[in-house]
Design a protein around this nucleic acid. Structure first.
Length: 732
DNA sequence: AGCACGCCGACT
DNA sequence: GTCGGCGTGCTC
């Protein structure tokens, strides 16, 4: 008589993470969006399932004990996600302890999120399709046009170089047909070039051959290739093989705008068979790329983190380039690790997952060593040059020699030499944030945000102090807010200040500053990098953004102004991050026809991380850092889950945190449970935040306990909110 | 989440 | 008397 439809309502909260039953007069497929009345609201819902019932509405209501409502409107003709991805959305919800609806939102492009009812206009154009290739046509001229159409498949009507009458003749003979076809906004239209293939080196050949021999088996391969060793070529060759066998490729990169080389390499080689997915695309562009994938017009998807959910069918290969990169971890709910999702999809499609990096994460490398992953190495650069020579510069010595400037004597000279030779320089200011804070020289106070436990940072552009965590901003004060002293001093060095100093130190040098500030606008990254590539700048000065995938052959010198900042961050990954950053940025030097050099300024030249960077010695770094992790019991020896307890009332937060700790200790007797401790930024936007950390090796016991705890505390009306983060990266 | 209902204080 | 504060509970 009716269909009972299970609907997930679109509010992404734990309180509503349960299916609501509606009625419909027809069957509705799982994965279709519907409009529903929910309480007093009209909202969008997502259909989970549908079952037929022979009873009437009234009979059903008698059993259920509540009134059913009917679905108001069916929005989609077809399910948004295929079977694989629907199942994956449920797995994702379980793995991350997130509401199912927020998993769906993370998986779909913004235009298709259940909540967004905005429609994106689909554009059409008329194209000529050859429907029969073996017609004998009447005249020579017709034959000519027919031949032309056979050679130019699906040509737009407006580009047809013969007369309309001629075309009509061909249509009459049922040789061709004019149809409306969707046209897509192609974000990389002007980027297409001819394919040029490089022969593989024996090392590359070995890897390609070996992976191809297991191409139809799910397994993970880790490629440890030094910077400039040609991992890209390996990816391209494998991809070509896979699509030749009529399967598809999922290629992930950390952030598209920061790794243009990889994107371009794929676009050049495979042209229209590639779809690009990332957040900087306009909504129309992104939607079109997504539709091209759904319509199976695409063989390869290149994209950032969320592209791991691309609706590709028949996946034959999944690649994660720069696998160590922290952007593969999503830091908002659902807090998933892309590598984990890649493995789930790889298992489903029975295909290899390739992880590539010059500086693999300890987690991955240890699996490579244990044989869980196949470990491959590319130890040499393809341009035959050795890796750049690295010099560590002891800044303590500089100070002893009364050099208080940002630049050591050696670095100043080196930069000057490069400029004189017409070569380019990359400088890294290894500092998160880019501006300075303000200290009063009379009372010593630092100006802080009234809502968060952080200092306000100075922005020169508008002469304002701003908070990093909330939008709070004030005019730069003239006098100290604490003691009314007049000596306010800007402390710390940001890229803006270094830029000024470079311009005074190196007369005539053009500096391109590359940081969050200067790359904000659309295509901001590309504009600046293009400028630098055209040699319109001599020095590229940037934050860690410049460490990734850039490839400028005229760069022969890379300088790191202060290597210590990231070493001193209170995070168990600080050493690993520093090693990765320094090794990656060093790799920007000497990629062309000239050898490159690197200088790293530091106060800890003896530190093992810096010594290993100097010798390009990943293995020693790995061994030493593994020792530390083993002694301190950190990943990869254990897994971590961080539990954030937050709320407006400090005492309630405190009590709940203690309660939770006691509960967990009772339920998880033999696991190490640390905390509760104040979070790194204890107060953020007037919310107090405490953290509990669990170290575990087996998650089976853990999940049901955390689920129960999270459900209990995330009920509406509770004064605290609990967030579980598996494999946490940013402990802010 | 978003909204109503309901129970309290303080104002035309 | 009644306007509005927000604490509590419900939505198929």
């Amino acid at each position: 008589m009716v269909y009972i439809v299970q609907v997930l309502v679109e509010h992404p909260t734990h309180a509503l993470d349960t299916a609501f039953d509606y009625l419909a007069n027809e069957e509705i497929m799982g994965g279709v969006r519907v409009a529903i009345a929910f309480g007093y609201q009209r909202i969008i819902g997502y259909v989970l399932g549908c079952e037929y019932s022979s009873m009437t509405k009234e009979e059903l209501e008698k059993i259920a004990g509540f009134k059913y409502r009917y679905i108001s409107e069916i929005i989609d003709e077809r399910p948004l996600l295929n079977q694989e991805l629907q199942e994956l959305s449920l797995t994702l919800a379980k793995l991350t302890l997130s509401p199912r609806i927020s998993c769906l939102q993370a998986m779909l492009p913004p235009q298709l999120k259940p909540s967004t009812n905005k429609s994106v206009r689909i554009k059409y154009q008329k194209v000529i399709k050859v429907i029969n290739k073996n017609i004998v046509v009447n005249t020579v001229k017709q034959q000519e046009a027919y031949q032309f159409l056979k050679e130019h498949a699906d040509i737009p009507l407006k580009d047809f170089p013969y007369s309309r009458g001629l075309l009509n003749k061909l249509i009459e003979q049922k040789a061709v047909l004019v149809v409306d076809e969707e046209i897509y906004r192609d974000p990389y239209l002007d980027n297409q070039k001819k394919e040029h293939e490089f022969p593989l080196t024996p090392d590359q050949q070995k890897i390609v051959g070996s992976i191809i021999s297991k191409i139809n088996t799910y397994h993970t391969a880790l490629i440890h290739g030094v910077t400039g060793s040609g991992k890209t070529e390996v990816y391209l060759h494998l991809s070509k093989y896979v699509i030749k066998n009529n399967k598809t490729v999922l290629m992930l990169v950390p952030e598209i705008s920061l790794t243009p080389m990889m994107v371009n390499a794929f676009k050049h080689k495979f042209g229209k068979q590639v779809a690009i997915l990332h957040s900087k695309l306009s909504s129309g562009e992104r939607y079109d790329e997504y539709r091209r994938i759904i319509n199976e017009e695409v063989k390869i998807v290149v994209g950032a983190r969320s592209a791991i959910f691309a609706p590709l069918e028949k996946i034959g290969l999944i690649i994660l380039d720069e696998e160590h990169d922290s952007s593969y971890k999503q830091e908002t709910k659902p807090r998933y690790q892309t590598t984990q999702i890649a493995r789930i999809r790889g298992k489903y499609h029975n295909c290899p997952v390739i992880l590539g990096s010059a500086t693999p994460s300890l987690e991955s490398y240890s699996r490579g060593q244990k044989g869980v992953y196949d470990l491959y190495k590319l130890p040499k650069r393809i341009n035959q040059f050795p890796l750049p020579e690295i010099e560590l510069i002891d800044m303590a010595v500089e100070i002893r020699n009364k050099n208080y400037s940002l630049f050591s004597k050696a670095m100043k000279e080196k930069i000057q030499t490069c400029l004189d030779c017409g070569e380019q320089v990359i400088l890294l200011l290894n500092k998160r944030g880019y501006a300075t804070y303000v200290r009063c020289l009379d009372c010593g106070e630092v100006i802080k945000c009234p809502h968060c436990d952080v200092t306000l940072t100075y922005h020169k552009v508008d002469h304002k102090l701003r908070c990093h965590y909330c939008e709070h901003q004030i005019e730069m004060p003239k006098i100290c807010p604490h003691c009314s002293g007049e000596q306010l001093k800007l402390v710390g060095t940001g890229t803006q200040k270094v830029e000024e100093q470079l311009e005074t130190n190196f007369k005539g040098a053009k500096v391109i500053r590359y940081d969050v500030d200067t790359t904000k606008q659309k295509d901001g990254h590309q504009k600046l990098l293009d400028q630098f590539a055209r040699k319109e700048g001599n020095i590229l000065l940037g934050t860690q953004m410049i460490a990734k995938g850039l490839d400028f052959e005229n760069v022969t010198f890379v300088g790191v102004l202060n290597a210590d900042i990231s070493l001193n961050i209170p995070d168990f990954r600080a050493n690993e991050r520093t090693f990765q950053l320094l090794e990656q940025v060093s790799g920007r030097s000497g990629r062309g026809k000239k050898e490159g050099t690197v200088m790293i300024q530091t106060y800890n030249p003896e530190h093992f991380v810096l010594q290993c960077v100097k010798n390009h010695d990943y293995l020693s770094f790995y061994q030493e850092e593994m020792r530390t992790r083993r002694l301190a019991i950190y990943p990869p020896y254990v897994h971590l889950v961080s539990i954030l307890i937050q709320g407006k009332d400090e005492t309630v937060v405190d009590q709940c945190a203690l309660q939770i700790k006691a509960y967990l200790q009772k339920q998880l007797e033999d696991m190490v449970i640390l905390g509760p401790a104040n979070s790194l930024v204890y107060r953020m936007q007037d919310i107090y935040r405490k953290r509990i950390m669990i170290k575990f090796t087996n998650s089976k016991l853990l999940y049901p306990v955390l689920e129960k705890m999270s459900d209990f505390y995330n009920k509406k009306g509770n004064k605290v909110n609990v967030v579980c983060d598996f494999n946490p990266y940013n402990q802010i």
